[in-house]
Amino acid sequence: MYTSITEFIEDWKQEAASTQKVLDALTDSSLQQSVASEHRTLARIAWHVVTSTPGMLNEFGVRVENVENSSTVPSSAKEIADTFRKVSADTMDAVKQQWTDASLKEMKNVFGMDMPKAVTLSLLIKHIIHHRGQMTVLMRQAGLNVPGVYGPSKDEWSQMGMEAPAL
C-alpha cells in the first residue's frame, strides 16, 4: 500500500516502462497469437491493458480521458504501444493533480469492496503486471524476443554472449 503519491509515481514509472518495453516488442503478425482459439489474443490482452487503465482510474475516482474507440482492438502493434505511452503519462499526471498523500487514506468503494485509495493504486499496478506476464508467454509462443523485465530474459542473456542460468 502506498503512503505517498511520489511512492506510487516511482512504482508506476518502473512498471509502466517495463510494460512499454513489452508492448514495443510486439509485431503486427504476433497480435493474433493465443493459447487456444477460445482465449484472448495477444492483441486483445495488450489492448485490455491500454484501455482498462483509464477505466480503472475512473472507477477509483481519478478522472482521466478514456481511450477513443476502446472497443475496437487495433491491428497495429505500434498503435497499441503508442496509445499506452499516452495512457501512462496521463495516469501519472492525473494522480499527481487530483490526489494527495492524505487522500490515499480515504476509503473508496471499488468493485463492491471498501478499500483505502492507496490500495486501489496497488491494484492498478498489479493489474498491468499480471497481464504483462500473460503477454510475455504469448510473445514467446509467437517467436518474438521477450524483453527482460526484472532482469535479463533468456533472449537477452544470449545477446550478452552468456548462457541463461539453469532453472
Rank of each mutant, 00 (worst) to 15 (best):
T51V: 15
D28G: 10
A43I: 05
A102T: 14
G161Y: 00
L121E: 02
I5D: 00
A166F: 07
G161L: 09
S52V: 13
Q134I: 03
K117I: 10
A142R: 03
L104N: 02
A94E: 05
S52L: 14
K96D: 04
I45T: 11
D155K: 08
D24Y: 06
G61T: 09
T19Q: 09
N145F: 00
G161P: 02
I129R: 00
M160K: 12
S70Y: 09
D24E: 12
E68V: 05
V73C: 03
S70W: 13
E7V: 00
T3K: 13
N145M: 10
A25E: 08
E79S: 13
N145A: 10
W99V: 03
W47R: 06
P54D: 10
F111M: 14
Q97V: 07
I128S: 09
L57T: 09
I80R: 03
T3D: 08
S71L: 14
A89H: 02
V73I: 06
E38T: 12
S76P: 14
V73K: 00
M107T: 05
L57G: 02
V67L: 07
V137T: 12
V95K: 05
S103L: 03
L104Q: 00
T100M: 05
G151K: 10
E10T: 07
V146E: 15
V67H: 10
S18G: 15
G161K: 02
M160R: 09
K13F: 03
E15G: 08
V64C: 04
T3Q: 13
V67W: 02
S88F: 07
M107H: 00
Q159R: 15
E68H: 01
L23H: 06
I5H: 12
I128M: 11
S29Q: 14
Q33E: 15
T91C: 01
I80H: 11
P54G: 04
L31C: 01
V146T: 15
V50D: 02
M1V: 10
H127W: 12
Q159Y: 08
V149F: 06
Q98E: 07
N69E: 13
E79V: 13
A118R: 08
R140F: 03
P147S: 15
T72V: 14
D82V: 06
G61K: 09
D93A: 15
E38M: 04
E38N: 14
V35R: 11
S158W: 04
A77V: 04
S30V: 02
I125Y: 05
H131G: 12
P165D: 08
E15L: 03
P54Q: 13
S18N: 14
A43S: 11
V64R: 01
M139A: 04
A89V: 13
N109Q: 11
T41Y: 01
T136W: 10
E59C: 04
P147Y: 04
L124W: 02
K126C: 01
A77K: 04
T19D: 07
G61I: 11
T120N: 07
S71Y: 10
L167G: 09
S122G: 06
S88H: 05
R132E: 02
R63E: 14
L23M: 11
L121D: 06
Y2M: 08
D28K: 08
K86W: 04
R44M: 05
I5F: 05
S158E: 07
Q97W: 04
E10G: 09
V119E: 05
M1C: 07
A118Q: 09
A89Q: 08
S29E: 13
T72F: 01
R40I: 06
S70D: 12
D24C: 03
I129K: 00
Q159A: 15
A142L: 08
W47H: 07
M92N: 05
D93M: 12
